[in-house]
Every structure is written in structure tokens, then in C-alpha cells.
Computed example of a mutant assay.
Amino acid sequence: MIIAVIDGMGGGIGAQIISSLREELPTYIEIYALGTNSIATSAMMKSHANKGATGENAIVVSSKKANIIVAPIAVTMPNTMMGEVTSKISEAICDSEALKILLPIMPENFSLVGVENKPLSLLIKDTIKVIKKEFNIK
């Protein structure tokens, strides 16, 4: 099983996600750190991802291989993260057959109604619960 964690900017959100996934999930699960820039990829790799890659093409190609994609919802919106998310990135993520677990961390000029405002640590715990339930992991 491959979990692709996608992040941009400084990679802090992705790094926290990968760190928690490593603690809670079996070691046979591969985690890919996919950054929109090299700083994000580097930060996520320090959290013990199995593989890391940077940029549009890496995200497009790896999104096809992933069973699960975990990322802030902004990765589905072209031109977010100060322009780091391209149309090809958002299209590849949305078109992927992978289960997409999107954290409701929104760009400044977007609002998502009907979603409970939770701290990142609780969003990550919810993410792990979904993965364990969907893939029957104890």
C-alpha cells in the first residue's frame, strides 16, 4: 500500500502527517513525500517517508501509483499555495483512483462551510482513523 502525502510551502503540515502515520500504521505501508518544492519535500523526508519527490511531474506520476492521498484541500485548487499548485497537479490528484483524504486547511480567500474547525493534530488523528477503517488495519 502506498500513501502519498502532498504539501507545499515549508512542508510543515505534511511532515506532521507523515510523523503521525509512521507512529500509528504498520511499517509495511510505504509513505511518499511529494512536495511542490524541495523545502517541503525535505521537511517531509525528515519525518521518515520511504520516498520523496518534488514538483509537478513527480506529483502527477506518483498520484497514479498511490492508494491513498493525504493533503490539505488546497492541493485541489489551481494556483493556491502562492502559485505552487498548478492545474496539472490539482487535476492529477482529483483524477487519481486513490482514496483522497483532504484536510480542510483553506487558502485565505476560501471558506468551507459545514466543516468543524479542528486543530491540525485532531485532523491528523481523524485521517488515521479513516485509513485504518477503509483498509482494515488494526
Rank of each mutant, 00 (worst) to 15 (best):
M1D: 00
I2S: 06
I2N: 11
I3Q: 02
D7G: 05
D7W: 01
G8E: 04
M9Q: 00
M9P: 03
G10V: 00
G14C: 10
G14D: 10
G14V: 06
G14H: 10
A15H: 01
Q16G: 15
Q16D: 14
Q16Y: 13
I17G: 07
I17M: 10
I17P: 00
I18F: 09
S19A: 14
S19K: 15
S20K: 13
S20I: 04
L21C: 08
R22M: 03
R22G: 04
L25W: 03
Y28L: 01
I29T: 06
E30A: 05
Y32G: 02
Y32E: 00
Y32M: 05
Y32A: 02
A33Q: 00
L34F: 05
G35M: 08
N37P: 02
N37I: 06
S38C: 03
I39G: 03
A40D: 00
T41V: 04
S42R: 10
A43L: 07
A43Y: 09
A43I: 06
M45G: 06
K46A: 15
K46W: 11
K46N: 15
S47R: 02
H48F: 12
H48D: 12
H48V: 02
H48L: 07
N50H: 13
G52D: 07
A53P: 01
T54A: 06
G55T: 06
G55A: 09
N57P: 02
N57D: 05
N57F: 08
I59K: 04
V61Y: 14
S63W: 12
A66V: 02
A66E: 02
A66F: 05
N67C: 01
I69A: 00
I69G: 04
V70N: 07
V70S: 11
V70W: 05
A71K: 03
P72M: 05
P72G: 12
I73F: 13
A74S: 14
A74Q: 07
V75S: 00
T76P: 01
P78G: 10
P78W: 14
N79R: 11
N79W: 13
M82C: 06
G83H: 12
G83Y: 14
V85W: 07
T86I: 08
T86A: 10
K88A: 14
I89K: 05
I89A: 04
I89M: 13
S90F: 07
S90L: 09
E91G: 05
C94T: 08
D95S: 11
D95L: 09
S96D: 02
S96I: 00
S96W: 01
E97H: 15
E97G: 15
A98E: 06
K100A: 10
K100E: 12
I101R: 11
L103S: 03
L103E: 03
I105G: 06
E108A: 13
N109Q: 08
V113F: 12
V113T: 12
V113I: 09
V115K: 11
V115S: 09
N117A: 15
P119T: 12
L120F: 06
L120M: 07
L120D: 00
S121E: 12
L122D: 07
L123M: 14
L123G: 03
D126C: 04
D126E: 14
I128H: 08
I128R: 01
V130H: 15
K132V: 08
E134F: 14
N136D: 14
I137P: 03
